[in-house]
């Protein structure tokens, strides 16, 4: 399988290891992975802010860069959701582009969804030992149905115990620019998330979207919790990176 990895702008800037972990997992699953060099962002921040023109420019660029691969995989439910669930609306006024957008959407996957349902990865190399609690990110969950996939993969790791938190499906308060515009509400929601997560006593909070993880970790640390790890599911599954 010839797979293009869409790194996502947050992983590129904030946590390159997430992309390296994704790379490692895709290769283990038997994929030939390419990382289109000119890639930047899927356009979601502009789209959500109502700047349709900018979003369209970036969508066009993504389509140019990623069409032609058998699959496009992203370590983010939110960015995968942008391509799969929103490019169609964004490109609706340009029939030629729309056709290409639809084709791209059809072969675009969030990482864990791809590993479970397409590549059918049998075993994972991660060596995390301890308990984790999983935060279901909104876009992945509600736009792409990402729920069991990460849990199934984590379940393949012998020494991992999953402790479900209450309100696992409730938003952590990130919401992209919402976290800046309405900082105090965003913080309040992050607080609820941290409380629910920490109540499980898990060693690590794991999720599939860096935005949520930065938000959750940021609130945890501000409250003085230096102990609970906050990890991307790809990092946990991939284990040591070379």
């Amino acid at each position: 399988m010839r797979v293009a990895l869409f790194v996502t702008c947050l992983a590129d800037l904030m946590r390159p290891n997430v992309a390296f972990a994704a790379l490692k997992l895709l290769k283990l699953a038997g994929c030939t992975v390419e990382v289109p060099e000119t890639q930047t962002c899927c356009g979601q921040p502009a789209y959500n802010s109502g700047d349709r023109a900018t979003a369209l420019t970036l969508a066009r660029k993504v389509i140019d860069e990623f069409e032609g691969y058998e699959y496009v995989v992203l370590p983010s439910g939110s960015c995968a959701g942008m391509i799969r669930a929103h490019y169609e609306e964004l490109c609706k006024d340009d029939p030629a582009l729309l056709a290409r957008a639809k084709k791209l959407a059809a072969c675009t996957y969030e990482l864990t969804d791809f590993l479970v349902n397409v590549a059918k990865l049998e075993s994972v190399p991660g060596d995390f030992a301890g308990s984790i609690t999983y935060h279901d990110s909104c876009s992945g969950l509600r736009e792409l149905g990402i729920k069991q996939q990460p849990r199934q993969l984590l379940g393949k790791m012998g020494q991992v115990e999953i402790k479900e938190m209450s309100e696992a499906e409730t938003c952590c308060g990130f919401g992209g620019t919402f976290s800046l515009k309405f900082g105090d509400i965003s913080t309040k929601l992050a607080d609820n998330k941290c409380e629910n997560a920490c109540a499980t006593g898990a060693d690590a909070i794991v999720g599939g979207d860096l935005g949520c993880l930065l938000n959750i970790e940021g609130r945890l640390r501000r409250k003085g919790d230096r102990k609970t790890q906050v990890l991307h599911v790809a990092e946990v599954l991939a284990g040591k990176l070379d």
């Binding site: 390159p16 515009k181 965003s186 501000r222």
Partner: peptide, 21 residues
């Protein structure tokens, strides 16, 4: 400030994926 009034912002490692890759 909207972010850091109530939260820390976890700092990145210092190089982008693009550079490292």
């Amino acid at each position: 400030g909207g972010w850091t009034d109530g939260r820390d912002f976890p700092a990145p490692a210092g190089k982008t994926f693009r550079e490292l890759y």
